[in-house]
Each structure stands twice: as structure tokens, then as C-alpha cells.
């Protein structure tokens, strides 16, 4: 019950916050009009409630944002160099990355973060299998693909650590044990 109220309240408060941010000052007028508009918007454009995991770790959230910023800067410079530099030979790839999470929210945020970093764009999502299909720029050979997939999975791991459910966290550590065993066997 509490979880359901909170799940509805978070987008509502987000709308009010955005309104206050746009005005750039916290005044009663901005707050009252913000609440009125948020009520109007959430009544007119009804959305199915997003199920939040009920867990958030601000430290890992901060790490995620910092890492994302670093990735964006690095990848932007790389792509800029590919565009400007001499000897550009087109070579791309469309790859499928099966994610471990079962939460719509984490899947959406992973897709969003992956698309934000230049060089990879999510083309489609298979929600049932929670698989992302993405287009990557400048992939020279098939050997580079596992590293690309690992990057997406790392983004997902950071997100789950920041705001994933206990279920997803458990799936994460299971996956790591399996991977370690596989490595030991080979």
C-alpha cells in the first residue's frame, strides 16, 4: 500500500520540481501553480504507475552519473576524431545484448544511458526477453563485440546497484559467480 502511494507520488513531485526549476525561484506562487498543473497533467495524461524498486543508494547513484559523464566526454571526442580525422572506413554493427534485470525502469534507464553515450544507439527493445538491440559505430571486426556488450552490462550493473530491487541484485551476484566458474573451467 505504502509502496503504491510512493510510486504515484514520485512522478507528481517530479512535475512540481520541474515547474519550480523552470521558474528558477522557490516562491509560493510557483509552488501553488506547480501543484495545480501537476494535478491537471497527471489527471489528463494518465500513465500506468511505474513500479519503483523501493531501494536507492545515493553513493552508487553518484558513481553512475560521474561514470556516465566521463563516458560521454570520451566517446564524444572519439567520434569527433572519427568524423574529422583522415582515413575513415565505414564499419558498423547491430548487436543484441540480453540484460539481467526484470524491471522496466532499470531497462529504460539502461537504454537511455547507452543511447546518451555517442557511438551506440538503441534501435529496439524486446521487453519480454529484456534484450536491447543496439547499433554501434566503428566496429572493425567481430572480435570487438564482446567488449561492447560488456560495457552495456556494466552500465546495467551500476544502475542496479544504485536503484535496483533486491531481486535484481541477487541475479547480479549469481551471474558473477557463474562467470567466474566459467572462467575457472576454461
Amino acid at each position: 500500500m505504502i509502496a503504491r502511494i510512493v510510486s504515484g507520488l514520485v512522478p507528481f513531485l517530479g512535475l512540481v520540481l520541474i515547474w519550480v526549476l523552470i521558474w528558477g525561484q522557490v516562491t509560493w506562487l510557483a509552488l501553488v501553480t506547480g501543484v495545480a498543473l501537476a494535478l491537471l497533467v497527471s489527471a489528463t495524461f494518465y500513465l500506468p504507475a511505474v513500479r519503483l524498486s523501493g531501494r536507492i543508494n545515493l553513493w552508487f547513484g553518484l558513481l553512475f552519473v560521474l561514470r556516465l559523464l566521463g563516458d560521454i566526454v570520451l566517446a564524444s571526442l572519439q567520434i569527433a576524431w572519427i568524423a574529422i580525422g583522415p582515413g575513415y572506413k565505414p564499419s558498423n554493427a547491430v548487436i543484441a545484448v540480453p540484460l539481467r534485470t526484470r524491471s522496466d525502469l532499470i531497462m529504460t534507464f539502461t537504454a537511455e544511458a547507452v543511447s546518451l553515450v555517442p557511438g551506440s544507439i538503441v534501435l529496439d527493445i524486446d521487453r519480454e526477453a529484456s534484450t536491447l538491440y543496439l547499433h554501434a559505430l566503428n566496429v572493425k571486426s567481430v572480435e570487438e563485440i564482446p567488449a561492447l556488450k560488456q560495457k552495456v552490462l556494466d552500465t546495467e550493473r551500476r544502475l542496479i546497484r544504485a536503484a535496483g530491487s533486491a531481486d535484481d541484485l541477487a541475479r547480479l551476484s549469481e551471474g558473477r559467480v557463474a562467470a567466474a566458474e566459467e572462467e575457472g573451467a576454461s
Binding site: 565505414p90 564499419s91 558498423n92 554493427a93 547491430v94 548487436i95 543484441a96 537504454a111 537511455e112 543511447s115 546518451l116 544507439i121 538503441v122 534501435l123 529496439d124 538491440y133 547499433h135 566496429v139 572493425k140 571486426s141 567481430v142 563485440i145
Partner: peptide, 29 residues
């Protein structure tokens, strides 16, 4: 920005507005 990139990318893939000869692999086909 990612939303519009995703919409345009999906439309491009579905309408076949891309060159398959420069793809190393296509795991979506």
C-alpha cells in the same frame, strides 16, 4: 535526445534506410 535518436533509428531500421554491406554483424535481423 536519446528518445528522438531511438525513434529515428527504429524508423531507419524498419524502412531499410541503411547499408548492410558495412555491418560487421546484424543480430537483430
Amino acid at each position: 535526445a536519446p528518445v528522438s535518436a531511438h525513434m529515428v533509428g527504429r524508423a531507419a531500421y524498419r524502412t531499410g534506410h541503411f547499408r548492410t554491406d558495412i555491418l560487421v554483424t546484424d543480430e537483430f535481423r
